[in-house]
């Protein structure tokens, strides 16, 4: 788990100008689609110069080939998980953009898949964070939060690295096939169509306060107009 989140947040260590988008679409039956985009193109010079090194701060710097293998490994693992399908990973190693997406049968399937992979990578150790859920769907409302391990990983960043993250953006989007009735997080904005809700922050603020992304979204029964 720790490794998985370390990998997800590895770019934060490498760079300041980072753009992250997490985008989840939920259908009325609980199935949906999850997208995760990491954009490091604003720091590609810095990333390229780091990749040219063998090690940084005593840690080995992976080569592009090794990064490709890690990405492919996670893609393979996720494809084999129950309730997960259409796993797609698009990588652009010129601009350093990674786009990931998959379909899921239920939010529980998505959560379980991520947890199982995390446990496999962390030598089958049970972690207390495995108990917690970050997504909960009951057909009329969705509760979203951020895993606490994310904070633990990112709090290890040096102050300067953490400060530099103020330059980045983190965008969390949640979409539905029914109109949104109301949202609890005051920072959330609704799209004009009322079918999507967005919270925009920066990675630094997110590290300081995970509740920024916490949200409970209530839906109406009105379906998306065709």
């Amino acid at each position: 788990m720790k490794k998985l989140f370390f990998l997800l947040f590895l770019p934060l260590i490498f760079t300041s100008c980072i753009e992250i988008i997490d985008d989840i679409s939920i259908n009325s039956d609980g199935s949906g689609n999850f997208k995760y985009v990491v954009n490091l193109s604003d720091s590609k010079l810095k990333v390229n110069s780091i990749l040219a090194l063998d090690s940084l701060d005593g840690k080995k710097v992976p080569s592009i080939e090794e990064i490709k293998n890690i990405v492919a490994e996670y893609q393979d693992k996720l494809e084999q998980k129950e309730g997960i399908s259409n796993v797609k990973v698009e990588t652009d190693y010129v601009n350093f953009i990674l786009k990931f997406q998959c379909d899921f049968k239920s939010v529980n399937d998505l959560q379980n898949a991520i947890k199982e992979i995390a446990i496999e990578k962390d030598r089958k150790q049970e972690l207390k964070e495995m108990q917690e859920n970050w997504l909960s769907w009951d057909g009329s409302k969705l509760i979203r939060s951020v895993p606490t391990l994310t904070t633990e990983t990112t709090q290890k960043l040096k102050k300067e690295e953490a400060d530099a993250l103020k330059m980045g953006t983190y965008t969390s989007i949640t979409r539905f096939d029914r109109l949104i009735d109301k949202v609890e997080n005051p920072k959330a904005t609704l799209s004009k169509s009322n079918l999507a809700c967005m919270i925009k922050t920066n990675p630094h603020a997110l590290i300081q306060n995970l509740s920024i992304l916490e949200n409970t979204i209530y839906l109406t029964n009105t379906k998306k107009p065709q």
């Binding site: 753009e19 954009n39 590609k44 652009d92 601009n95 004009k192 169509s193 999507a196 967005m198």
Partner: peptide
Amino acid sequence: TTKIEFFYDEETF
């Protein structure tokens, strides 16, 4: 340098 920036449609995000 050149960089890629994401832009959002206000109607649908």
